[in-house]
Design a binder for these strands. Structure first.
Lengths: 342, 342
DNA sequence: ACAGAAATTTTACCCCCGTAAATTTTCGCT
DNA sequence: AGCGAAAATTTACGGGGGTAAAATTTCTGT
């Protein structure tokens, strides 16, 4: 290693013997400098481990290289997975994704939005809390930053990308009806628009098939869905509160809790003989494959949602257009994932 | 709303009629300005929603308000949960936590380290990949940034905070031996020092109790532990590869997969009569409570690890000391979590 | 070899705010 | 009311690098 530590681009450029702006150009696009210059810079880079100050970089750029990603609850493996995929897409495209979580609380969502706004990101991928969101704060944010909303269709941003609950729910309702007792629908207090849509879709699907919809609502709140499924679902099981032996849960996490509750009570879950209960979910949560029995569910098309969200945002950013007024909604169909729980 | 949009602190200060540095003082510590001034600023804040540019803020500060948090795999609920707790602690202390994930890959860990370094964070909380880490890159990072390492004890940073595998593993081994057939130990390719320590602790504990240690190694790699447990654990089950009907897994995720594999084969897991297999894990993963049967495991003391890591880092940062050379290691004991899988 | 065009590199200015030093205001006390 | 110290505010400067415009170099074609 050479003498003193290189701390600034100025020093770095001086050490090479070229001007700082040329080095700056290199970092923004290595191909924009002559090959001989590029080689000199890269050789020096090997030696000094110099890294531009990210604050200084973004401070005077008309568009930062930063993309904000906000989810309601990062500890939920569903969102963790979405974020993981989005993050890589952004990095590959040369952006710096900044991950933020609302931790299920409105004031933290608002704080996260404020943090994001102060980052002046080129664009943002937002999965709002939904019901608990501060709509005005979201609107204000989306007015300043090109925004694609995913998962939870809150009416802000340029585009929404998500799942088509009115396709996925009827599909699994249909399956459940054709293979056994028509399902009742277990939900908790709806935390976001998806929850409401799924319930409504369930009711429509049942009516269309000529069955009586039965919605079972448990009053848990918060984001510990499995716990709610276990506790309140368990109470329902004990008290005979479920009007059907087939239970379609509003999401997989609730179903995971319910399966655990059934196990506690010695109720065998599954579609085979000797089973007391069929349980199905929605989302194809990363761990649904590993429940016992494995959970029958309907998958959200993670990949498509992520790809489309990111691609839409990049288009938005590149074109510089803000399709004022005509917000678009892109919905992907789910796939039936048949496993043995229902 | 007033006329034009306020974009900079300069404009904001002008709109109020005070100087910018006073506003700057306010943002750094509201109590540092006179009450009358504070009230004026806060009234204007209500009206304008001005938010200082985070890049400019940190650009000229001797110590940024930023704390870097790096984990090997953010989609792992264990890390997601740790990060969640750390994040809140940092926010409460007035810091801006930046979450980064290595996504299980060395080059991404290195990129994340580079990103973090360019953020010039006040301090960093690092859970290295472990075996896949680039030790030199970690060292270089820790030389520049006060660093607390957690979970995976790679020899860098000022302090390590983690679990005491040599307490936790013997505890569960002891329990398993006293209540049934002595366990074999199922591991995969060790991804980090914990994995090795757990195996060694298992061997020591078994020998101390006068039993023959039996380590079963499956050759899966990557971070999809449940899948490995399901597939390779399943193969072992089918081929009679487990030398004991009690299986202690290196971690809960592996155990979750193994339980699913047992279910597939009609093997009942648990300690009751009629059960073919006992399965135990390690970590008390957020979802271990909800497996069927619920997983017997030993908990890592999440809260203590998080609190101690963050507190240690803050001490380090405030004191400005770098305890060169005398790296400390703080280990927390696990607790036996008795559920019905073993 | 040379004029002119194209590609690179430099020059010069600016971004938005932190911070130390200088100035002003406030406030307690005689 | 007046004085001096303490608190608050303002002045002045700088941080690390982006970027448009100017200057230079390199490349064409003849």
């Amino acid at each position: 290693m050479s003498g003193r530590e290189i701390r600034t681009m100025e020093e770095f450029a001086e050490a090479i013997g070229i001007s700082r702006p040329t080095v700056s150009k290199y970092f923004n696009d290595p191909a924009s400098v002559r090959k001989t210059t590029r080689d000199r810079i890269e050789a020096a880079l090997e030696e000094h481990h110099y890294q531009p100050n990210i604050f200084a970089i973004n401070q005077n750029r008309k568009a930062t290289k930063c993309i904000g990603i906000l989810v309601p609850y990062l500890s939920d493996p569903f969102f963790a997975e979405m974020v993981r995929l989005m993050e890589r897409r952004c990095i590959d495209a040369g952006f710096w994704p900044v991950i933020l979580s609302a931790h299920g609380e409105q004031h933290l969502e608002n704080e996260a939005l404020a943090t994001m706004r102060s980052l002046r990101p080129t664009g943002a991928l937002l999965a709002p809390l939904g019901r608990a969101s501060d709509l005005k704060a979201l609107e204000r944010f989306a007015r300043n930053v090109p925004t694609v909303v995913f998962d939870s269709n809150v009416p802000v941003g340029e585009t929404f990308v998500g799942s088509n609950n009115f396709q996925s729910i009827p599909m699994i309702v249909d399956y459940l009806c054709r293979t056994g007792e028509p399902p009742c629908f277990m939900e908790m207090q709806p935390v976001n628009p998806n929850a409401n849509k799924r319930r409504d879709a369930y009711i429509m699907a049942m009516e269309k098939l000529g069955y009586d919809p039965q919605v079972v609502r448990v009053e848990g709140s918060g984001w510990e869905f499995e716990q709610i499924g276990l506790e309140l679902g368990g109470e329902m099981l004990s008290s005979g509160g479920f009007p059907s032996s087939t239970i379609l849960c509003s999401n997989d996490r609730l179903a995971i809790g319910l399966i655990a509750a059934a196990f506690e009570r010695g109720l065998r879950v599954g579609h085979g003989q000797g089973c007391a209960l069929r349980v199905a979910g929605h989302d194809d949560h990363p761990l649904s494959r590993f429940t016992t029995p494995p959970l029958t569910t309907v998958s959200q098309d993670y990949m498509s949602i992520v790809n489309k969200s990111v691609a839409t945002l990049f288009d938005l950013v590149e074109s510089g257009e803000r399709n004022q007024g005509n917000r678009t909604e892109i919905l992907f169909d789910g796939k039936l994932i048949l496993r043995s729980s229902a």
